[in-house]
Simulated assay, not measured.
Amino acid sequence: MDDLVLLRREFDAEEGTFLGGLRPDLVWDKAAFSRLEQAMRRVCAAFAGRDELPRWLVEGFWFCADWVPSWTGHADFPRPEPLEYYEGAVERLRDLQSWFVTGESPYLEHHEWPAI
C-alpha cells in the first residue's frame, strides 16, 4: 500500500488501523503501530526539504504526537507491554513530527531506527 494512502487511512482512524483501534477499543496494536511509524518515516524522508506540506499530513503528524500520548497515558488505558515500550513509541511519534515539520531528522544521516 502506498504510504500516503496508508497515512490517510490512519489519520482518518479507519477500521483496521492503529488509530482506529485506540479510541473505541482501547487496543494498542503493535503491528499496526509499526506500519504507521514506518510509513511516517518514509514520508518524512520523501518530504524533507520541501517548502510546502499538505495540511492533512501536518495535522495527522501533530495529532499522533499530541493525542496518542495523552490518550494512552491515561491510568485506565490497558498497557500489557513494559512501560519502556510505550515511552519509546511516544518518543518516536514526537521525533517523526519534528522531522516532518522541520524537514530535518533529529538523528544523524545514517541513523538506524530500532524496531518498536
Results as ranks from 00 to 15, higher is better:
3 D>W: 06
3 D>E: 11
4 L>M: 10
5 V>R: 12
5 V>K: 13
6 L>N: 02
7 L>N: 09
8 R>Q: 14
8 R>C: 00
8 R>V: 02
8 R>K: 12
8 R>M: 02
9 R>L: 07
11 F>N: 06
12 D>L: 13
13 A>G: 01
14 E>F: 05
14 E>V: 12
15 E>Q: 12
15 E>I: 10
16 G>I: 10
17 T>H: 00
18 F>V: 05
18 F>G: 10
19 L>Y: 00
19 L>D: 05
21 G>E: 11
21 G>Q: 11
23 R>Y: 10
23 R>K: 07
23 R>L: 15
24 P>I: 07
25 D>T: 10
25 D>L: 15
25 D>C: 07
26 L>R: 14
27 V>I: 13
27 V>N: 02
29 D>G: 05
29 D>R: 13
29 D>P: 01
30 K>P: 04
30 K>E: 13
31 A>I: 09
32 A>L: 11
32 A>E: 12
32 A>D: 12
32 A>K: 11
33 F>V: 02
34 S>T: 14
34 S>K: 10
34 S>N: 12
34 S>H: 13
38 Q>T: 15
40 M>G: 01
40 M>A: 14
41 R>N: 05
41 R>I: 15
42 R>K: 13
43 V>P: 04
44 C>R: 00
44 C>H: 00
44 C>A: 04
45 A>C: 00
45 A>P: 02
46 A>W: 03
47 F>I: 02
49 G>M: 09
51 D>I: 01
52 E>C: 00
52 E>L: 09
52 E>T: 12
53 L>V: 06
54 P>E: 11
56 W>M: 08
56 W>K: 08
56 W>T: 06
57 L>G: 03
58 V>Y: 04
61 F>R: 05
61 F>N: 05
62 W>G: 09
62 W>L: 15
62 W>Q: 15
63 F>P: 03
63 F>I: 02
64 C>N: 14
65 A>W: 03
66 D>M: 03
69 P>A: 05
70 S>G: 08
70 S>P: 01
71 W>S: 01
71 W>Q: 07
73 G>L: 14
74 H>S: 11
74 H>Y: 06
76 D>F: 10
76 D>Q: 14
76 D>P: 10
77 F>K: 06
79 R>G: 01
80 P>E: 08
80 P>G: 06
81 E>W: 14
82 P>L: 01
82 P>E: 09
82 P>H: 03
84 E>Y: 02
85 Y>W: 11
85 Y>H: 12
86 Y>F: 15
86 Y>S: 07
89 A>P: 00
89 A>G: 07
89 A>S: 06
90 V>Y: 00
91 E>F: 09
92 R>G: 07
93 L>S: 06
94 R>Q: 15
94 R>E: 15
95 D>V: 08
96 L>W: 03
96 L>P: 04
97 Q>R: 15
98 S>F: 15
99 W>Y: 15
101 V>C: 14
101 V>H: 08
103 G>T: 10
103 G>Y: 09
104 E>P: 01
104 E>I: 08
105 S>F: 01
105 S>H: 05
105 S>N: 00
105 S>A: 12
106 P>G: 03
106 P>Q: 03
107 Y>Q: 05
107 Y>V: 00
107 Y>F: 12
108 L>Q: 12
108 L>C: 04
108 L>R: 13
109 E>M: 07
109 E>F: 06
110 H>N: 11
111 H>S: 03
111 H>F: 14
112 E>M: 00
113 W>R: 03
113 W>F: 11
116 I>T: 08
116 I>M: 05
